[in-house]
């Protein structure tokens, strides 16, 4: 479904060139949930932003459902690939009601018929009461906002959903609700997802396969059950796994000692 070949991205910071991605290649099958894990700055979010078309300076080959992607994305692309952002406090327009946020995609894609019904259905789908329809984001909690963001991403019925740390800004109890919601939506709609997270438990809960990234490269790719059995091959992944199990001075030392 999604093919990424030799994706290279270099950011310019003043006069310095900072490589963000160095030849990343990935394959995500249709209907699969693919996890991308790694520490901050490993380039995992950059992969998503390039796929979504938000980062325009890249080289390599991208294809979704066999169609190669260029620098500029078409409207049809946006109807097929949608994204949920990390920070639900920043991803909703502060002056737009939930209704406006949800009906805007329909208006952009000229899906005029039964707009009201679709907005209501989208609210039902993400488990928000219909009374939320005309509220502003500042009247919603973080979890509710993230539900609105998910509803907005799904209202065009895309085939691919890109998730950029969708739960890391939320409370633990709300995290579980959002993850369960995403799992349910995935099974109902046969969505292909790429889930970016630094949280191995989240990825373990959601993903079928995952890739571990570090310094802009993929260090290891594996099915999620190998992670669950605690037997990843690459030493860095093992470190990450140990780090996820809790704070351990030896692991912290080892992580810090590495370049």
């Amino acid at each position: 479904m999604i093919t990424v070949r030799d994706l290279t991205v270099t950011f310019r910071a003043g006069n310095r060139l900072v490589p963000a991605l160095r030849g990343v290649s990935l394959d995500v099958a249709s209907g699969e949930v693919f996890g991308l894990v790694g520490e901050s700055g490993s380039g995992k979010s950059t992969v998503l932003r390039v796929l979504a078309g938000l980062t325009r300076d890249w080289s390599g080959t991208l294809a979704i459902a066999g169609e190669p992607l260029g620098r500029r994305r078409t409207r049809a692309f946006h109807a097929r690939v949608q994204m949920v952002f990390q920070d639900p406090y920043g991803s909703l327009h502060p002056r737009h009601t939930v209704d406006r946020a949800l009906s805007e995609p329909l208006r952009i894609h000229r899906r005029a018929a039964d707009r009201d019904a679709r907005v209501l259905r989208a609210l039902d789908d993400v488990g928000l009461d219909r009374s939320f329809r005309f509220r502003y984001p500042h009247q919603l909690s973080g979890g509710q906002r993230q539900r609105v963001a998910i509803a907005r991403a799904l209202i065009l019925e895309p085939a691919v959903l890109l998730l950029d740390e969708p739960t890391s800004a939320l409370d633990v109890s709300v995290q579980a609700e959002i993850l369960n919601l995403l799992r349910r939506l995935r099974s109902e709609r046969d969505l292909t997802m790429i889930l970016v997270s630094h949280d191995l438990t989240v990825v373990g809960h959601m993903a079928d396969r995952l890739a571990v990234m570090r310094h802009g490269q993929v260090v290891e790719e594996m099915p999620v059950d190998r992670l669950a059995r605690g037997e990843p091959a690459h030493p860095y992944t093992r470190q990450l796994l140990r780090a996820a199990q809790g704070y351990d001075p030896a692991t912290a030392e080892a992580l810090l000692a590495e370049p």
Partner: peptide
């Protein structure tokens, strides 16, 4: 992010500037 989200929905630059 909300501008990025609107762009991801395929909003045209005019819609982005005027509406967002």
């Amino acid at each position: 992010d909300f501008i990025a989200a609107a762009r991801l929905q395929g909003a045209s630059p005019i819609r982005l500037v005027v509406g967002h």
